[in-house]
């Protein structure tokens, strides 16, 4: 299997590390009451048969985190992009 790194092109699977579900948005809430949002972010993940978006890191290459759209039934990769920021983040 090969993964198309947006920087490095098609590279073999063993240069990459899997990083989990990329469909989740990291909560920005900063209160105890937001616990359920955090539980959802950390623990509640879909396991679709079909297209899924997931994080991978090109650890044996440019070390970029990328987001891949992969069909879990046949491992066909339809899209690979640099991982976009998952939230607006904190103060600068």
């Amino acid at each position: 299997m090969q993964i198309p790194c947006p920087w490095c092109g098609l590279r073999p699977l063993d240069e990459f590390a899997y990083g989990g579900d990329a469909t989740k948005k990291r909560p920005t809430g900063k209160r105890q009451a937001d616990t359920s949002a955090w539980v959802d972010y950390v623990y509640i993940h879909d396991n679709p048969a079909g297209r899924h978006r997931e994080y991978w890191q090109h650890v044996g290459g440019c070390r970029s985190w990328i987001v891949i759209t992969r069909d879990t039934t046949n491992h066909a990769i339809s899209k690979a992009e640099l991982a976009p920021p998952d939230s607006r983040g904190g103060r600068r």
Binding site: A17, G19, R26, Y55, Q57, V59, R63, S64, W65, L82, A83, P84, P85, D86, S87, G89, G90, R92
Partner: peptide
């Protein structure tokens, strides 16, 4: 890897 993820995805700013 964790640091790189946090920087590239959570806090690129």
């Amino acid at each position: 890897q964790h640091m790189e993820f946090c920087h590239q995805v959570h806090w690129p700013e």
